Simulated scan of single mutants.
Amino acid sequence: MKTFLKIFIVSLVFFIVAFFLGTQAYIKENNSNLEENINNNGLKVPNTNIQDTSEYLTLAEAFEKSPRINFLILGMEDVRSDTIILASANPQSKKVNLISIPRDTYIHRKGYDRGEQRKINSVYHDHGIEGLEEILSYILVDIPIHHYIILDYEGVKEMVDLVGGVEVNVPFHMKYSDPHAKPPLSIDIPKGKQVLDGKRALEFIRYRKGYIDGDLGRIKAQQQFLKSFGSKAASNLFSLIPKAFKYVDTDMGLLQAASYGKIFSGVKDEDISFLTLPGIDEFRKIEGKNFSYYIYDEEGIIEKLEDIYNVKKQGNL
């Protein structure tokens, strides 16, 4: 599942970039009056007039004045958030920084004392998107979250089908079954170059056994899938967007998404950087049972956010 978590995060990012750009193209193609509405409709778009070279004295000042737009991206597995990522995008530099939040991140909420309830992936079930936004903002030292985007397993499968499948070179015969996985796994993909439909693409990116070079082999397979998926999505934006919208749960409407598509039209693959929430893995005993948690490091988080938001270091004041 950890392998799927990583690939799913990147897939979401590629899809969302394509989603914004394609929505912009779709609106321009279908109704020229909507382009004017984007600019005159009072949409919730943070200030983008500040130059990218701005430096800030504190994170609080940066959060208030920076043009950055922050998106909470969720990949759902049943009622739990299997993937949690904070995407922070700068409209001047076209840089996108993605902070992966491990699903086992420890967070103890009053009245939720069981071991499994102390993991961040249980928050959405108990408190919905608003509760998860509040807790994530707390962990990330009060960072503002402007929008959310939610996609589930079915959405990933449908995304691949919408672009007509994804071509990959399967390095070996992938065969594995696990009836207890969610959703259940029954993988049987032959070796060789082939176009995978949504169902098989989902199986391909969830497969994690048999690579000769271990994690490196899985990473290569993931990168191959992403490159192929990104290429297909980019060449099918016009037809993809109006169909894909129903698979995405978001607080943005079509005009709002189009406005961001206009702002971030220059984003390239190399403009997207990844990091994991600073912290360490740790076992803790709750009610006599051992649970594996990810304990976040507040000082490390502050340091990373200061880098992202261009906050001056004390020695440079």
Rank of each mutant, 00 (worst) to 15 (best):
S66L: 06
V160G: 15
E203Q: 14
E154G: 07
Y148T: 09
G300D: 09
V267T: 11
M159F: 15
P91D: 07
A233L: 14
G164V: 05
N290S: 11
I85K: 06
E134M: 06
I301C: 10
G217L: 05
K246E: 12
I302L: 11
K304R: 15
L21C: 00
I263V: 06
D307K: 12
S137V: 11
L21W: 02
G128Y: 11
T3G: 11
M174K: 03
L21G: 07
L72Q: 08
S228K: 06
T3R: 14
L136Q: 12
H180R: 08
S177E: 15
F229R: 03
R114T: 11
I189W: 05
D251C: 05
I27W: 02
D215E: 15
S228A: 14
I85Q: 12
E270L: 01
L185F: 09
D161M: 04
F4Q: 14
K313M: 00
E55W: 01
I219A: 15
N310V: 01
K182T: 14
R200I: 00
K182A: 09
G164D: 11
N30R: 10
I295Q: 05
L237S: 09
I187F: 04
I145N: 13
N31T: 03
L277T: 10
L74W: 05
A257H: 01
S11W: 05
V17W: 05
E270T: 09
E270D: 14
K191M: 08
R80P: 02
P171T: 03
K313E: 13
D152R: 09
A18T: 12
S292M: 03
K304N: 12
M174Y: 08
S228G: 10
V311Q: 08
L240F: 13
G42W: 01
L74C: 03
I139P: 14
L86H: 08
A60E: 15
I69Y: 05
G75H: 05
F4G: 15
I263G: 01
N97D: 11
D215F: 03
N49Q: 08
L98R: 01
V168T: 10
S93D: 07
L185M: 13
M174H: 03
E303W: 00
G131C: 13
E29Q: 08
F238A: 15
F71P: 04
D213H: 06
T250A: 04
V156I: 15
T23Q: 03
N290P: 00
I205E: 11
Y106P: 00
S235D: 09
I149H: 06
A221C: 15
Y207R: 04
A244Q: 07
D307R: 07
L86V: 13
Y296M: 03
I308Y: 13
S32N: 12
T23D: 05
I280Y: 13
A244K: 04
S137Q: 08
S93R: 05
K182Q: 15
N33V: 06
Y153H: 09
H180A: 10
K65M: 07
T250L: 02
M1T: 15
K95Q: 13
E36L: 07
V45Y: 02
N316S: 14
N169E: 15
E116H: 08
N31E: 09
Q24K: 10
E306S: 04
R284P: 00
G22Q: 02
V267G: 08
P179C: 04
E36S: 12
G22C: 02
I187G: 05
S93I: 00
S186Y: 12
K304V: 05
